[in-house]
Simulated assay, not measured.
Amino acid sequence: MVIFSVTKFEEGAWIVVVITPIMLWVITKISKHYDSVGKQLKFDLTEPIPSTDTVIIIPVAGINKVIVSPISYAKSLTTNVVAFYVAFSPEDAKKMEERWDEWNPGVRLVVVTSRYRTLIKPLIEFIERIDHHYKHQKKLTVLLPEFITHKWWHRLLHNQSSFRIRTLLLNRKDVVVSTVPFHLKD
């Protein structure tokens, strides 16, 4: 077999000599992955489901119809609901607080002023402060309001902040990220 592999290498034996071991290695890795996932997902039916209290954070960009549904949904799940707003100036912060108090949805508003007009960093810092405050005793959920558009190219115009927030938070084990859709008509 060695002599055959060497003499016929250029005529196609390289496929058997090179590709077959690589395929066997890949198949073995895939099998080990599935075994590992199976072990991690195995559940003992006698184990009780742990109950944890939840804090829900809703990033808001202002007061509009898009945030009504997430706030209503969050309030149906827990009383620990916080709306999080990033203002770009102290005047903007004051105006939002006044409008929020006038509307009064029964949810606490936290306003942070971002000097550099960034949304993500203040939200991540706020999540870390809440997580540190509760010392991992409560589950954190970030509920993202999101537009659902009818035309594919409209999606490029909306939800970019939500996409970035979701991308950053999905890798964190201590945060659940969920979306509440708002369907636009056109």
Results as ranks from 00 to 15, higher is better:
residue 111 V to D: 03
residue 134 Y to Q: 15
residue 146 E to W: 06
residue 132 H to L: 05
residue 7 T to C: 00
residue 117 R to M: 03
residue 52 T to P: 08
residue 99 R to L: 14
residue 133 H to E: 06
residue 106 G to W: 05
residue 44 D to N: 06
residue 138 K to V: 15
residue 54 T to G: 03
residue 129 R to L: 15
residue 104 N to W: 07
residue 118 T to M: 05
residue 23 M to H: 00
residue 32 K to F: 13
residue 4 F to E: 03
residue 88 F to V: 08
residue 73 Y to D: 15
residue 49 I to H: 10
residue 89 S to A: 03
residue 93 A to G: 06
residue 129 R to V: 15
residue 96 M to D: 00
residue 111 V to C: 02
residue 178 S to M: 12
residue 57 I to S: 02
residue 22 I to H: 03
residue 70 P to W: 10
residue 185 K to E: 13
residue 57 I to V: 09
residue 10 E to Y: 05
residue 36 S to G: 12
residue 6 V to S: 01
residue 179 T to N: 03
residue 77 L to P: 05
residue 170 L to Y: 11
residue 89 S to P: 07
residue 96 M to R: 00
residue 186 D to F: 14
residue 96 M to Y: 01
residue 149 T to I: 12
residue 175 V to D: 12
residue 155 R to W: 13
residue 145 P to E: 01
residue 12 G to D: 01
residue 62 G to Q: 15
residue 32 K to L: 14
residue 175 V to S: 08
residue 58 I to N: 07
residue 42 K to S: 03
residue 2 V to I: 09
residue 166 R to A: 01
residue 166 R to N: 08
residue 157 L to D: 06
residue 104 N to T: 02
residue 168 L to Y: 01
residue 54 T to M: 06
residue 123 L to W: 05
residue 141 T to C: 08
residue 89 S to F: 02
residue 36 S to Y: 11
residue 186 D to W: 15
residue 94 K to E: 07
residue 173 K to Q: 12
residue 11 E to A: 00
residue 103 W to I: 10
residue 116 Y to N: 13
residue 20 T to L: 06
residue 48 P to T: 09
residue 32 K to D: 15
residue 83 A to D: 01
residue 70 P to R: 11
residue 21 P to R: 02
residue 103 W to D: 04
residue 157 L to M: 09
residue 153 W to S: 04
residue 7 T to M: 00
residue 50 P to L: 00
residue 123 L to Q: 04
residue 145 P to H: 04
residue 121 K to A: 15
residue 22 I to W: 01
residue 80 N to D: 15
residue 61 A to G: 14
residue 8 K to I: 00
residue 121 K to T: 14
residue 51 S to A: 08
residue 32 K to Y: 13
residue 139 K to D: 12
residue 139 K to I: 11
residue 42 K to W: 04
residue 94 K to S: 12
residue 72 S to E: 15
residue 51 S to V: 08
residue 144 L to K: 06
residue 16 V to D: 01
residue 22 I to K: 00
residue 108 R to F: 11
residue 46 T to L: 14
residue 134 Y to I: 07
residue 182 F to N: 07
residue 161 S to F: 11
residue 6 V to R: 00
residue 116 Y to E: 11
residue 145 P to T: 04
residue 130 I to K: 04
residue 14 W to F: 02
residue 152 W to I: 04
residue 142 V to H: 03
residue 90 P to H: 07
residue 173 K to E: 05
residue 163 F to L: 10
residue 166 R to D: 06
residue 171 N to W: 06
residue 131 D to M: 12
residue 66 V to R: 11
residue 130 I to C: 08
residue 81 V to W: 10
residue 152 W to R: 14
residue 121 K to V: 13
residue 14 W to P: 00
residue 88 F to Y: 13
residue 39 K to F: 10
residue 29 K to T: 04
residue 133 H to P: 05
residue 118 T to E: 12
residue 39 K to W: 08
residue 79 T to Y: 15
residue 26 V to T: 11
residue 15 I to D: 05
residue 94 K to Q: 11
residue 75 K to W: 14
residue 116 Y to G: 14
residue 73 Y to E: 07
residue 29 K to R: 09
residue 132 H to W: 09
residue 167 T to R: 13
residue 165 I to P: 05
residue 56 I to G: 08
residue 4 F to D: 08
residue 34 Y to W: 14
residue 78 T to V: 11
residue 5 S to E: 01
residue 27 I to Q: 14
residue 52 T to D: 09
residue 119 L to E: 01
residue 59 P to D: 09
residue 101 D to N: 06
